[in-house]
């Protein structure tokens, strides 16, 4: 069994680029397929969000099946918000059965934020426990309850998210260490707008030697407008959008261009930051700019791996 493309890319020391697709609030995947197709030469793997911000959408695993049919590589996001351990483990097996190899284990936004605010938040296990559970399923062939899998799993590439912009700030590098201990092989960060804070976090991460134990992919999101920046600044949990960035956008004639410029510059800085192994480009609802960003950041063409 071979490793995923994303894992190979990172193992061989290439600066990786992962993209992101947000499934629709319907079962019609035509637009999503279109976006996936347009980015196919620019990203190494596609994150597929799992009912992002607690809004009901096509399941990430369902979309993964479509991507695999298209010959593309999914990175399935799995939150612990909506499923208990029975369902999480069973869904994971189902996804592996048709070829998913990358999994990103997340907690998930509280259901209060979504379109089913009256639903139960399951949280039977937390994101750390889920990550460790998948590692044990893969490495030891056991379920959470101790029962054995009937056949070993193929190599899986396990990911987690980390947020250098959340509090307590001093704890955040140690949280990364804990995720590594639980089984994370790669992590993607929350969108980086406050690059100074990110670099302070990285300094501590390097001091602890964590960058040598895990692949860190910096999260990058192009900002489309001042409104979008303001929205993220005040309404998105765990994000920091510095006022200076908004001022810069205000000063620009073409806001969208400037948003792309900022994303490109961010990637360039991340490439120069010791310990950053790649970028995760999240351009939900603005997918068409991904190729341009990747190209201008000097990450195109993507290496083709055997």
């Amino acid at each position: 069994m071979t490793a995923s493309n994303l894992q190979k890319m990172l193992d061989r020391g290439n600066f990786a680029v992962s993209g992101e697709l947000g499934p629709p609030k319907s079962a019609d995947l035509s637009t999503l397929k279109h976006h996936a197709h347009d980015m196919r030469n620019h990203v190494d793997s596609y994150n597929i969000t799992d009912n992002q911000t607690a809004i009901v959408r096509t399941s990430s695993i369902g979309v993964a099946a479509t991507l695999i049919q298209m010959g593309l590589e999914p990175n399935v996001q799995m939150t612990v918000r909506d499923r208990n351990r029975i369902c999480l483990q069973s869904d994971l097996l189902g996804a592996v059965s048709f070829g998913v190899r990358n999994f990103l284990c997340l907690q998930g936004d509280h259901a209060k934020f979504g379109n089913e605010p009256g639903s139960k938040n399951v949280n039977d296990v937390d994101s750390m426990q889920w990550l460790q559970a998948v590692k044990k399923m893969r490495d030891e062939g056991i379920f959470i309850g101790g029962d054995k899998l009937e056949h070993p799993l193929p190599p899986l590439f396990l990911g987690a998210v980390v947020n250098p912009f959340a509090d307590p700030f001093e704890y955040r590098p140690y949280r990364l260490a804990k995720k590594i201990a639980a089984g994370a092989q790669f992590v993607q960060t929350q969108c980086i707008f406050d690059i100074d804070r990110f670099e302070r976090w990285m300094t501590k991460v390097r001091e602890l030697g964590l960058h040598k134990k895990v692949y860190i992919l910096g999260g990058v999101t192009p900002i489309k407008s001042i409104g979008a920046a303001r929205y993220m600044q005040s309404n998105v949990a765990g994000m920091i959008v510095p006022e200076a960035l908004i001022t810069r956008l205000k000063g620009a004639q073409d806001k969208k261009r400037e948003g792309i410029n900022i994303a490109v510059e961010t990637i360039q800085r991340l490439r120069e930051t010791e310990g950053v192994a790649g970028v995760h480009v999240m351009a939900i609802a603005w997918e068409e700019v991904v190729p341009e960003i990747v190209e201008r950041a000097g990450l195109y063409p993507r290496p083709v791996l055997s």
């Binding site: 938040n121 949280n123 750390m128 509090d167 639980a182």
Partner: peptide, 29 residues
């Protein structure tokens, strides 16, 4: 903790408050 987490704070904890509301303290903080 609004998400009943056992292993530390989620990425929504900011300035001591829980991501669900500024009125709620983050238990992990």
């Amino acid at each position: 903790c609004s998400k009943s987490m056992f292993n530390g704070p989620c990425g929504g904890s900011q300035e001591g408050k829980c991501e669900v509301s500024k009125e709620v303290d983050c238990a992990w903080q």
